[in-house]
Simulated scan of single mutants.
Amino acid sequence: MNFEDDELYRDITGFAHDTPTWVQHTAEVWTEAGILLFGALFVVAWWRSRSDSTRAFAIAALAPVATALAYVGSELVKSVFAQERPCRAVAGAVPSLAECPPTGDWSFPSNHATIAGASAVTLALVRRALAWLTAPLALLMALSRVFVGVHYPHDVVAGLLFGALVAAVAVRLGTRSATRLAEAMRTSSAPAVRWLTGEGPRTAHAASHRRR
């Protein structure tokens, strides 16, 4: 690593150690809980898309799949670069707030940041207004990985960009096929399959009108 990156890591982790205990604990919790929050947002997006157009449902269904693909890609990149974690490699740094992952669990790029970047972009593709929520959450999640001492700053920047790019491309390439599959599922004779995809906007509206 270059001197500037090591110095920035020392500055951030040193600042982290000077923050109140509750801030440190919040960062330690958030750095893992952020993934669960994005997972919950995927579920909400799927549920809402059941009464939306077939294409919108397809994109909502693709969002977690594209995020998983980005994660797998980041794991492959990690194995190529095999960069040691800064909590072991940076001389003179304070101890990391989070437990330093074992050797072999490489640092570049950050998997958490990759998932955050991919989740933020795919959820915004499902519903554009969500970008106002998902983008800050992704940035906070990426920053927390440096704050707790387990990643270099460049790890999380690369993870965010890699995750966003891979996921966006995966959704774009998969939307047409996923839409055709969703159309077939919405006309399936199996009730469980139709429940999974929802009725779509026109059918749902007609059913609501009949109930009146």
Rank of each mutant, 00 (worst) to 15 (best):
M1V: 10
F3S: 13
E4C: 00
E4Y: 13
D6V: 00
E7P: 00
L8M: 12
L8P: 00
Y9A: 02
R10E: 08
R10I: 07
I12T: 05
I12M: 10
I12R: 07
A16T: 08
H17I: 00
H17N: 12
D18Q: 14
T19H: 02
W22I: 12
V23D: 02
H25T: 10
T26A: 15
W30Y: 15
G34M: 10
I35C: 00
L37P: 04
G39T: 04
G39N: 03
G39E: 03
L41N: 05
F42L: 05
W46C: 00
W46H: 11
W47D: 01
R50H: 03
D52T: 10
T54V: 13
A56E: 13
A56I: 01
F57S: 14
A58N: 08
I59Y: 03
A60Y: 06
P64D: 06
A66W: 05
T67L: 01
T67D: 01
V72P: 01
E75C: 01
L76R: 04
K78I: 09
V80M: 11
A82M: 13
A82T: 14
R85T: 05
C87N: 10
R88H: 14
A91T: 13
G92S: 10
A93S: 14
A93D: 03
S96L: 07
L97Q: 04
C100I: 07
P101T: 07
P101K: 06
P101E: 06
P102G: 10
T103Y: 11
T103H: 12
G104E: 11
W106E: 08
S110W: 09
H112V: 13
H112Y: 03
H112P: 05
I115V: 15
A116V: 03
G117F: 07
G117D: 09
G117I: 10
L123F: 03
L123P: 04
L123Y: 02
A124Q: 01
R127T: 11
A129K: 12
A129Y: 00
T134Q: 05
P136Y: 09
L137P: 00
M141W: 03
M141P: 03
A142K: 05
A142M: 06
L143Q: 03
R145G: 02
V146L: 03
V148K: 06
V148I: 12
Y152R: 12
H154E: 12
V157M: 08
A158E: 07
G159L: 07
G159W: 07
L160N: 05
F162G: 02
G163P: 08
L165T: 15
V166N: 05
A168V: 08
V169Q: 01
V169K: 02
A170L: 05
R172N: 06
L173Q: 12
G174Y: 09
R176L: 02
R176P: 00
S177G: 09
S177V: 11
A178R: 04
R180S: 13
A182H: 10
E183C: 09
T187K: 10
S188M: 11
L196K: 07
L196T: 14
T197W: 14
G198M: 12
A206Y: 09
A206F: 11
S208V: 02
H209R: 15
R210I: 01
R210V: 09
